[in-house]
Amino acid sequence: MLIAYLTAGAPDINTTKEAVMKLAKKGADVIEIGVPYSDALADGAILQKASKQALMNGFHLDHLWNLLSEVNEIEVPLVILAYYNQIWHYGVEKWVKKLVAHNVKGLIVPDLPYEESKTLRQICDRYGLNIIWLISPTTNKTRAQELARACKDWIYVISRTGVTGLETEFDKQIPKLIGELKKVTKAPIALGFGISKSEQVKLVKSWGADGVIIGSACMQILLEKGVDQLSEWISVMKKSFCP
């Protein structure tokens, strides 16, 4: 499973739309769309820059809703990443309804730990939207297994402590963590943060992970080289994961 990430509206919303379409054709199994945010705590330099660029270009939530209606036809599932303040300020129920109406399959909220998520969980359950929980190398075993059980779709394992970006060293605990999660869940496990090379993708697969999430590398290629180069690169990465 190859999950490709795009920041909505970076460099502009039409490029995002084009990228979503092409990535879907070129091998992405899931496309994760990040909603630009002024204070994206979990993001490293590349994604912060992408967020900032989108906001400077006047990104609004309306652009996101338009984008989602325009890419409605693609067969690849879409997942939205947003910070909790964006969801909360919009209205949790309104937000979830909107995503479900646009055929979005999952929601990632990087600054919302399980303990604070009661309302969001209830509403997501009601409307049938999956919350994708993040598990970090610092998450203790019991908690990690609880989070894994709470996942109804796939599980996002963070490859190392830190923010998103191209720093490629994985935490030494990761193979063990994947093994422990496998014991308690059948849900697919995807590894994200710092993945940008074919060798890494192969390594992650050898640990038993079912997928990889590629974010910063995607946005770097998109912003520097454009949509076509990005989709070619993604097809190469896909071949590394599923030869």
């Binding site: 730990p113 303990e115 993040l134 970090s136 610092t138 402590t161």
Partner: peptide, 20 residues
Amino acid sequence: ARGKFGPFGGKFVPETLISC
């Protein structure tokens, strides 16, 4: 115990920081 001041406060942080 959850760090709440009535409805305010709490712990809205990335998972990595929860154990810290």
